[in-house]
């Protein structure tokens, strides 16, 4: 919308300048309409033309600012929306925490089995030692 408004302003100003009858072509790059054709305008002049147009008409300036503000707000909203959608997609397909939970379960189970096995082995060894000592003492 903003670009369209600027294009309309440029077209109007260019057409007005062409009508004023300079007839010498575009020279160093100002906006010129020859036979109802809009020629490209150099950037510094374009900025000046826009600024002049906005200074000349406060209502036009206000509308341009509103358009620019709305455009920026739309871009912010789009970015926020994208951020939220990315976060939702991340949560939806969150494999990391599932893997972490299953790994934690197996690690705890393996740790408990290892603890049981080592204790059982130690107890077996102690029982065997005590029995040997008691038998030796008895004989």
């Amino acid at each position: 919308m903003k670009r369209l408004a600027i294009l309309i302003v440029l077209f109007t100003l260019g057409a007005a300048r062409a009508d004023s009858g300079s007839g010498s072509g575009s020279g160093s790059g100002s906006a010129v309409a020859t036979d109802n054709k809009v020629e490209p305008v150099a950037a510094p002049n374009l900025r000046k033309i826009c600024a002049d147009a906005m200074n000349a008409d406060p209502a036009f300036a206000k509308s341009i600012i509103e358009i620019a503000d709305k455009d920026a707000a739309d871009r912010r909203l789009e970015a926020t929306e994208k951020e939220h959608l990315d976060a939702a997609a991340h949560i939806e397909k969150d494999e990391k925490h599932v893997i972490l939970a299953y790994a934690a379960m197996w690690i705890i189970a393996a740790g408990f089995v290892l603890f049981l096995w080592r204790r059982q082995q130690a107890l077996k060894a102690e029982i065997a030692q005590l029995r040997r000592d008691l038998e030796k003492e008895a004989t």
């Binding site: 949560i91 397909k93 969150d94 925490h97 599932v98 939970a101 299953y102 379960m105």
Partner: peptide, 9 residues
Amino acid sequence: FFNQKIFFF
């Protein structure tokens, strides 16, 4: 969500 798979265990 995929994290519901944790539910089963």
